[in-house]
Amino acid sequence: MNRTPNNGPAARTGILGIGNILIRDEGFGVHCVRQLQEEFLVPGDLEILDGGTAGIMMAPFMESVQALYVIDTVNLPAAPGTVHCFSDHDIRAGDIQGMMSPHQLGLLEILSLCRLRDRAPETVELITVVPADLSTGLGLSSVLEPRIATVIALLREKLAERGIVLQPRPSAVHA
């Protein structure tokens, strides 16, 4: 059985990929966490979740981590493929409210529910990318496909600052 956020001890750091993989670039966050899991060994103090567009079902995961990184698409007036990070402070200040995709608003609501229960992560960071293609279909656009590597590199840096080092899986080492 897969390890889930619902059993075992609370993990310290969480990575949550969200989006709808049936709407091409909308699924960017999910594609990122899938690739991350394929290419790297995940240490015990790191939890990774493909959240899809799951809404409230993500709450237990969010309440089980102290630091949370969320990967998603964002509707910003910037060129497709632009990567932008939001901090927890941006979210609290409400600066970005209304600018995100429908399930993103769900995410912020869920975070506020976690806060109400005094169980929100201490830090939340959103790593987002501006989509190029939101048509029905599978797979990312050629603009966003290379951004997976960008975001994974960014994420590894951020994790390293927290003392978490991601080692490539032996089988995933490319020549």
Partner: peptide, 23 residues
């Protein structure tokens, strides 16, 4: 506020029997 705990228990039971949530 309590409902949040109990929806989670249902979710947890589902995860045990079905391998993974939310999918």
């Amino acid at each position: 506020l309590e409902a949040l705990d109990y929806q989670r228990k249902a979710d947890q039971a589902l995860a045990i029997i079905s391998g993974k949530n939310p999918h």
